[in-house]
């Protein structure tokens, strides 16, 4: 090894040392910054609640998809993904129709509300809706139900 090669190696080592020092300085600065300004550091406040939200986004409780209130049955996620982007799932769960009328409703949404072509998913969706949200037979006037009785005070 001659002198110039030795000098080159020394310089290279110096450069590497400077780079490492520089990187460490930046890392230290950022860490200090985040200690003094905790809001800058994303994982400080939210870690517990956020990790549960992530895990449970599509959780099912008592046969109900919690996030949307839809019944857990074959086709659920196809319905969630195609039917709850533009409107609330509440608009689905409060309606009851047969296949013909659900299909008409889809056609109406495609004509008037920018619903995309559902392709093979349409049958999955309509089957799900008819099975889980079919029409109920009611008369021209139902009995009063769900009465919450209370003592009327003067």
């Amino acid at each position: 090894m001659n002198e110039s090669e030795f000098n080159k190696k020394i310089k290279k080592a110096q450069r590497t040392a400077y780079q490492a020092a520089f990187a460490t300085a930046i890392a230290t600065a950022l860490l200090l910054f985040s200690i003094y300004y905790p809001t800058f550091l994303v994982f400080k406040n939210n870690e517990t609640q956020l990790s549960t939200v992530t895990l449970d986004e599509d959780r099912i409780e008592n046969g109900i998809h919690v996030r949307t209130g839809l019944v857990d049955a074959e086709g659920l996620m196809t319905v969630v993904n195609n039917c709850t982007n533009c409107h609330s799932s509440k608009l689905v769960t409060q309606n009851r129709m047969n296949a013909e009328r659900w299909n008409e409703t889809i056609k109406w949404m495609q004509e008037k509300q920018n619903l995309w072509d559902l392709g093979e998913n349409q049958k999955i969706i309509v089957d799900y809706l008819v099975k889980n949200y079919p029409p109920k037979k009611v008369g021209r006037r139902m009995q009063l139900t769900d009465i919450e009785w209370y003592e009327l005070q003067d």
């Binding site: 990187a23 930046i26 890392a27 950022l30 994303v42 994982f43 939210n46 870690e47 609640q49 956020l50 990790s51 939200v53 992530t54 986004e57």
Partner: peptide, 20 residues
């Protein structure tokens, strides 16, 4: 990159941000 280590809750945090 700077620390050369994984951030333990990082992945969960970023996914979780949107639903919240």
């Amino acid at each position: 990159t700077l620390l050369g280590t994984d951030i333990v809750y990082g992945a969960k945090m970023l996914e979780g941000y949107k639903p919240l």
